[in-house]
Design a protein around this nucleic acid. Structure first.
Length: 957
RNA sequence: GGGCACGUAGCUCAGCGGGAGAGCACUACCUUGACAUGGUAGGGGUCACAGGUUCGAUCCCUGUCGUGCCCACCA
């Protein structure tokens, strides 16, 4: 028995359990061993995360694909898991420690702190997974992975070591994006350029050998800067080689104000005569451009800031080298100041001495750390880099050749643009939570990279024994005892960028580097579903790593979906407070409604502005379905498993079979081509506007009529179509459909594993034999080569025409009744005048239904419309409602006049077209033919309307 | 500075070379035996603007205006 009311919450919980108990989502189910696999790896959410709208969309779409392919008989593996999210997780735990007023990270020390993080993960790391389950995600949860699992960590180590051996990972000292709050390097991608209102300071640098005077422009050169505090690290001033203003100064020196350092004026094309003063200060240790300029001119790199972006001058040999006496005092005074405080002080000091020419307001882009939000400092350090440029080549080629397709295609350009300009990828992070870099250092700084500590240590000790740094005996001792070798051989403290392990996700989750059956069977995956915001972070890097280590691209399709925004189009963010929590929507409207909304709005290439009213609307859709199923139940509708709709005899049933086939085709093709919104639209229209609005209504008289063949067949067909609907809708609304599937009939299995509706067609004996011989009964059989469009086999033009006539007639009568303000309780008669033989034959079959739906008392035939009646045109014939006395004749005249005007308008427009010789000459024949038909129909309509008006006149007079 | 989208009904969005659709909202009527989370009927759009291509443009092209996003080392 179907409950009277649809209650999503209760259903969702029960269905989830049902699926889990049945192991429905498990990959490699015994009966599907022979089936073609279908694999998707989930974009692993952060363990720290909770489900947001982006996740909801992303996973809904993946789930639609997985459930669809599962029903199509494939062996589906939807590989779930979570990401350790280095910085984010470390921050969460640190914050928690602070809130609880417990010892902080540094107090705990590395080992203790990591213990705490693992403990946190065990307690709170499962939240997002449970939320995904609530959404209905049909992942194989038994295979859940975590990027820091033992197996995945081995994959990370192996990849690092191999890339290192191949020279594709190396250590380098260069400028990095340094986050002075988190005290770690970050990659280019983790830097956000934010527009900041600041100032441009114009500074006067005195020229060596000339007496400085603010009033004598010859005595100095002006440089403009947005970061005056970095002047302490200046090692040159650069001007453009073709800039006449400064030509004679090139080769001369300036004396750096306050500091007293003598630095050269160099000619370099980097300097832009249009910008600032045309002369630019060069600080190689604190600016990416200046770093390059410095390299070109062999300039020293003077770092004047420390890790926390405070001035580090005292004892800074690079800084103090060759400076006059007085400048050490300045150094002492400024030492330790934060960069902003230092800026103020230096500007003030410059002003005091007349070195500040002017200050201009200036708005410019300033790099910020996307996690910490603080201004990033270019900082000179040793870091590990991946040679992304080399790895990018095959990754680009795979997309160019079509091995991997990006859908929608326009994202390919973005992918290529980035890949072509790719920079070395800085992969080391000065954090604790993550994969510690498998590199060990000897006393002389020599690096030993190996997958395990044992290996690295034995390597290193062997090397130092050979170099006679230690004796073989010492070597043996150190090999056995970690304490003995500590201080001699130390491991790199840093961990790897989180995205390093994510890049391996499509194969590390399958067991690589071990040679597992899963790797063989499920790699490469079929499709990756993700948002465009991580194309660079993740997609590109998976392509690189997958191709390099597996020799095959990790997925054949990348489907890029939209971003979910709020109703006004703004990005949802906690700080803006415009976040819609998907869990709240699930609580209120059900997961099915949320999923359907997201699918319906997931049109390609457009962001989704989510309005909750849409969710409500689709919840109502679920209710509609619920009640339609109740109706079927109340009427004892049931279908035997071998029911064949092609064998139906009743026009109405043949019609719905035809419509079902069409819906099947539409939904199937739309999902196959990732047009989720079209798929959702097709099933929505079919359920509501075809099945409920017409089929069930038209079936009512039969179902309520006498027992007999017609009634039996209709009952069966109602149930059959319902079942097809449940199947077609299941990928979108899994919970309600599974529940209804279970409740409406005794079934052998769960809907989640039921076969997808066939694109039904009448098969030849030969084809049937092929199917019988196929390995899996639900697998597509290639040898069949069935045409995609199989609706023709199911189409019954006669049924279509007949039901179409009924629909049109009922609609027309309803419309005119509403217009004439006829109360629903008033039953009117219908007279079909001048009816064709066809109509005369049809009408009796539909008397009950038409009477019921159009609220008629009786239907009769006549040669002419009765006097004083309302006359309707239905498919070229006149249907009239004799309403003499009931209706206002002048109102009816007005109505007919309006219709006449419309018909005239149509005729005019078509005539104009047909009169245009060029149109007739150039337009395709069928378009011209169409117009001619339109013309004919319109003029026939006009004639009938004129007749009707004539008759009305005779009544009135 | 470069790139990519987008501007269609009051709102949120589909669509697309042959006179435009959905959901919500709105109006009127309906407690009809699946459903008021419903039914029936209806109102509402020079498809941002201006040119061009075409027999024909909401749809293709160019430009303008507006909005959003991504990328970029320019003091």
């Amino acid at each position: 028995m179907i409950e009277k009311n649809y209650q999503p919450a209760d259903i969702e919980e029960r269905m989830s359990r049902l699926w889990e108990d049945a192991g429905a989502f498990k990959a490699g189910r015994a009966e599907r061993r022979e089936a073609t696999p279908f694999t998707i790896v989930i974009p692993p959410p952060n363990v720290t995360g909770s489900l947001h709208m982006g996740h909801a969309l992303n996973n809904t779409l993946q789930d639609i694909l997985c459930r669809f392919e599962r029903m199509r008989g494939r062996d589906v593996l939807w590989q779930p898991g979570t990401d350790h999210a280095g910085i984010a997780t470390q921050m969460v735990v640190e914050r928690q420690l602070m809130e609880r007023q417990q010892p902080g990270r540094r107090d705990l020390g590395r080992a203790k702190f990591l213990e705490r993080v693992w403990q946190w993960k065990a307690e709170s790391g499962g939240i997002i997974v449970n939320q995904l389950k609530r959404l209905g995600a049909s992942c194989d949860w038994s295979r859940e992975r975590f990027t820091m699992d033992e197996g995945l960590s081995r994959a990370v180590a192996k990849v690092f070591v191999e890339l290192h051996r191949q020279g594709l990972i190396y250590k380098d000292k260069r400028l990095v994006n340094w986050d002075p709050k988190l005290l770690t390097a970050i990659s280019d991608l983790e830097v956000q350029q934010i527009e900041v209102k600041g100032s441009l300071w114009y500074l006067r640098y005195p020229i060596e050998g000339r007496t400085f005077s603010p009033d004598d422009p010859k005595s100095f050169i002006v440089v403009a800067t947005t970061r005056p505090e970095t002047m302490l690290g200046d090692t040159a001033v650069a001007v453009h080689p073709d800039d006449d203003r400064y030509r004679d100064l090139v080769g001369k020196h300036v004396i750096l104000p306050l500091v007293g350092r003598r630095i050269p004026i160099v000619a370099d094309e980097y300097s832009d005569p249009e910008k600032g003063s045309g002369a630019v200060k060069v600080t190689p240790a604190h600016d990416f451009n200046d770093f390059e300029v410095g390299r070109r001119h062999n300039l020293p790199q003077i770092s004047v800031l420390d890790k926390e972006a405070c001035l580090a001058l005292a004892g800074n040999e690079d800084y103090l080298r060759g400076l006059p006496e007085g400048s050490a005092e300045l150094a002492a005074e400024l030492n330790g100041l934060d960069r902003l405080a230092a800026r103020k002080k230096i500007v003030a000091r410059m002003e005091d001495f007349g070195f500040l020419e002017r200050i201009e307001p200036n708005t410019h882009m300033v790099p910020h750390g996307d996690r910490s939000g603080v201004v990033i400092e270019p900082y000179l350090t040793d870091q590990w880099y991946v040679d992304a440029k080399t790895l990018a080549q095959p990754a680009m080629a795979a997309v160019r050749s079509g091995t991997t397709t990006i859908v929608p295609k326009n994202w390919e350009k973005t992918y290529f643009d980035w890949m072509e300009n790719i920079q070395p990828w800085c992969v080391s992070r000065q954090l604790w939570w993550g994969h510690q870099i498998p590199a060990w250092y000897g006393p002389d700084g020599k690096v030993f990279v190996a997958e395990t500590e044992e290996e690295a240590v034995s390597h290193a000790l062997g090397y130092y024994v050979e170099q006679e740094v230690i004796t073989p005996a010492q070597g043996r001792e150190m090999a056995l005892d970690r304490n003995k070798r500590s201080g001699f051989i130390t491991r790199d403290e840093d961990v790897l960028d989180t995205w390093f392990s994510s890049a391996l996700w499509p194969f590390s989750t399958l067991g690589w580097p071990d040679d597992t059956p899963e790797v063989k069977r499920y790699y490469p995956t079929n499709v990756l579903v993700t948002g465009f915001d991580i194309i660079f972070f993740w997609v590109a890097r998976m392509m690189m790593m997958g191709l390099h280590f597996m020799k095959e691209a990790p997925f054949s399709t990348v489907y890029i979906h939209a971003l979910v925004r709020d109703e006004k189009g703004a990005k949802m963010s906690k700080s803006k407070g415009n976040v819609i929590d998907p869990l709240h929507l699930i609580d209120e409207y059900g997961a099915d409604a949320l999923r359907f909304t997201l699918a319906a709005m997931a049109a390609q290439g457009r962001d989704i502005k989510l309005a909750t009213s849409r969710v409500e609307g689709y919840r109502n859709f679920a209710t509609k379905l619920w009640n339609a199923c109740r109706f079927a139940e109340m009427n004892a509708c049931a279908a035997p498993s071998d029911f064949d709709p092609i064998k139906t005899t009743q026009t109405l049933n043949r019609w719905i079979a035809h419509e079902t086939a069409r819906a099947t085709r539409e939904v199937t093709e739309a999902i196959e081509t990732y047009r989720f919104n079209d798929a959702a639209g097709a099933i929505y229209r079919f359920v509501w506007n075809v099945y409920c609005d017409w089929y069930l209504e038209l079936a009512k008289p039969v179902l309520m009529g006498e027992e007999g063949a017609a009634k039996t067949e209709t009952r069966t067909t109602v149930a059959w179509a319902r079942d097809e609907i449940l199947k077609l809708l299941h990928p979108f609304m899994p919970f309600i459909t599974e529940e209804l599937w279970a409740v409406t009939a005794k079934r052998e299995g769960l809907l989640v594993l039921a076969p997808w509706p066939r694109r039904t067609t009448e098969l030849t004996a030969e084809q049937m034999a092929l199917i019988a011989a196929a390995s899996s009964p639900i697998e597509p059989v290639p040898a069949l080569a069935l045409p995609l469009n199989e609706s023709a086999d199911f189409s019954d033009p006669a049924a279509e025409a007949e039901i179409g006539w009924v629909v049109d007639l009922v609609t027309a009568i309803r419309s005119v009744r509403a217009e004439m303000n006829i109360a629903p309780a008033t039953l009117t008669a219908l007279v079909l005048s001048g009816a064709s033989a066809e109509t005369k034959e049809r009408a009796p079959r539909w008397v009950d239904v038409i009477k019921r739906m159009a609220r008629l008392s009786d239907i009769s035939f006549a040669d002419q419309a009765p006097e004083g009646s309302v006359q309707l045109l239905v498919r070229g014939e006149v249907a009239s409602l004799p309403l003499k006395g009931v209706i206002d004749l002048s109102a009816e005249r007005t109505r007919l006049d309006k219709e006449l005007a419309k018909a005239d308008g149509d005729i005019k427009r078509v005539d104009a077209k047909l009169a245009n010789e060029k149109f007739v000459a150039n337009a395709p024949e069928e378009v011209v033919e169409e117009e001619k038909e339109k013309r004919e129909a319109a003029s026939a309509r006009k004639a009938k309307i004129l007749e009707a008006l004539e008759r009305l006149k005779s009544v009135a007079s």
